[in-house]
Structures are given as C-alpha cells and as structure tokens.
C-alpha cells in the first residue's frame, strides 16, 4: 500500500513531500520518544507522532521511514516543512489523535486482524 492510498483512505492533509506519495508503506509505528523510534521502527514504516520539530525529519530520514503522520492538527513550522522537502520525507497531517490514527491505519494495513 502506498502513502497515496493511505492519504486518501484516512483523509489526510499532505503538508510536505507530495512528490513521494508513491512510496510503499511497510507498516506503522507510533511513538514520541525519538530513540524508541530509531530502535524499533522498521524501514518503510509510517510514523505516527505528536512531535513536530525538525529533528523528526532527521529521525525519519536516518531510520528510512516512508513518511511521518502528525497527530493532533497543528502543522509544523515552515522551516520543518522545507527540511522535509529537502530530505524527501512526506509529512501528513490529521486532526485526529495518535490512538485513533493508529487504529485506523492498522485496520487498512493489517485488514485480517479482528
């Protein structure tokens, strides 16, 4: 499943990296502690977080994540979006909280689990 499919199905706003939405999503990871993400997220995962500072882009890039899904509505600062474009990291935005987003993402990525 691509980022574009997820954007459409979850009704997300694309605030950076619109040119890389054909990237495949290998799974999801939810967390706000950066070292935890580096330790446990797998390459190609879509990362759900409430953090929206520039280091999020660095984490996503070094961990090889497919993109970042920001929970809770507020868009990040323009400098963060510019860095995400430069690093080819799509930033997706939703007004929903992380719990709800993780549930909805899990339902479409792992549809067989009841």
């Amino acid at each position: 499943m691509t980022l574009r499919d997820i954007v459409r199905q979850l009704g997300l706003e694309v605030v950076a990296g619109a040119g890389w939405l054909d990237r495949d999503v290998s799974g999801g990871f939810s967390g706000d502690l950066l070292s935890n993400v580096l330790a446990s997220a797998r390459p190609g995962n879509l990362w759900i977080t409430i953090q929206r500072h520039v280091n999020v882009v660095g984490v996503a890039q070094v961990a090889g994540l497919s993109g970042v899904l920001l929970a809770g509505g507020e868009p990040p600062a323009a400098a963060v979006l510019a860095k995400a474009e430069e690093m080819a990291i799509p930033i997706l935005l939703s007004r929903d909280g992380a719990f709800e987003l993780a549930g909805r993402l899990h339902r479409i990525l792992v549809p067989d689990v009841r």
Binding site: D32, L33, L34, S35, H53
Partner: peptide, 15 residues
C-alpha cells in the same frame, strides 16, 4: 519535551 532523554541513546549506538 522534544522526545529526547529516553535513556536509550547509548543503547541504540551499541545495538
């Protein structure tokens, strides 16, 4: 507050 200081940095380096 920015998500640092989890006490996992050196562990991640070692791993």
């Amino acid at each position: 507050e920015l998500g640092f200081g989890a006490g996992m940095g050196l562990c991640n380096i070692q791993a």
